[in-house]
Design a protein around this nucleic acid. Structure first.
Lengths: 171, 171
DNA sequence: TAGCTGCCCATGATATTCCAAATTTACACA
DNA sequence: TGTGTAAATTTGGAATATCATGGGCAGCTA
């Protein structure tokens, strides 16, 4: 899982080091996909072959000529840059994506579970601030609580009686 | 999988370089099929022998004299150009397909998972813009989310607990 | 014979790989 | 707890390989 946030820099040749903990998540593959986040937040979103395979399976599930599928294929499949890390874990960011996300100089890598995000540091700070404010809403924690309960049930834990929440926890 | 978007040019002799990453998807074969996209978007759609084999199997499944089958055979099988790449990975675009898709000068190759598209750059830009606008719809992300969850479930991953999302990733 | 087509080689631009230095991080030991 | 050593990571730059593109030539066709 892509966790935490790291800062990195774009060098004179447009190269960027992927944070080592994120590289480890790519399972030995050196292939990275990058596209513009669909939510209009202005950041880039990225992942490795495993994520793209999941997306392919997901998109294939949608009706072939449906608007939803066409939109998502356009945004994610056609809109992706297909990049390869060099031996030291760097990729070259395409110009158009840099421009779209206003990347220049220093950037932030933010974990997003199955994928990660790449941010302009200023925009990331603003985004963080808005998230912090939104987290104060009771609705947020209420929704979280409901979902959490559902997961507990699903795992045969009708009532919580100990610290061991799932059988095979991840490393 | 055909991913990402690349720009190329039609030279004075009507030749077009297939982007190297797309050539790699053709599995060593130099045969390319091209036809007009069925959705009326005005682009061309193309693929290699593997895709055409899939289409053949699909069309064979349809009732022999059904209208559906006749339409699809006419559009895809009869409507396809059967082209061969030269040693440097170029094809010659047939005149009629160029005219139908308004191709002239520079063109765009857009990945479409199992196939790829060939666009007039202006039309592609307009298409992208409409897709970007459509992506803002909550319905789109909701549908994507549902399909993604289903895929996760199907893989016995009621909860996500590791970076390995699918068993046999594709090449 | 003129034009089209397929095949071949040349070239500039771009991307990738390789090497090495600098910096940071982790670890062992006092 | 502090310090020295080792490892890993991040950087910078140069050499190499790949790719897109242009043009030449021979053979086929009309």
């Amino acid at each position: 899982m892509f966790v935490s946030t790291y800062e990195s820099a774009i060098d004179a040749k447009g190269r960027v080091s992927i944070p080592a903990p994120f590289r480890a998540e790519l399972g030995g593959s050196s292939r990275i996909f990058l596209w513009q986040a669909l939510d209009g937040s202005g950041c880039l979103e990225g992942g490795g072959e495993a994520l793209m395979a999941m997306y392919r399976a997901t998109l294939t599930r949608l009706a072939p000529q449906s608007d939803v599928r066409k939109v998502l294929v356009n945004r994610i499949i056609a809109g992706s840059a297909d990049l390869k890390m060099d031996e030291t874990g760097r990729i070259k960011l395409p110009e158009d994506l840099c421009k779209a996300a206003e990347l220049d100089g220093r950037i932030k890598f933010a974990g997003n579970m199955d994928s990660f995000q790449i941010w302009n540091p200023d925009k990331h700070a603003a985004y963080n601030a808005s998230m912090e404010a939104a987290a104060a809403s009771p609705d947020v924690m209420a929704a979280f609580g409901r979902a959490y309960s559902e997961v507990l049930h699903q795992q045969g834990a009708g009532h919580y009686n100990g610290p061991k929440l799932v059988e095979g926890g991840e490393g």
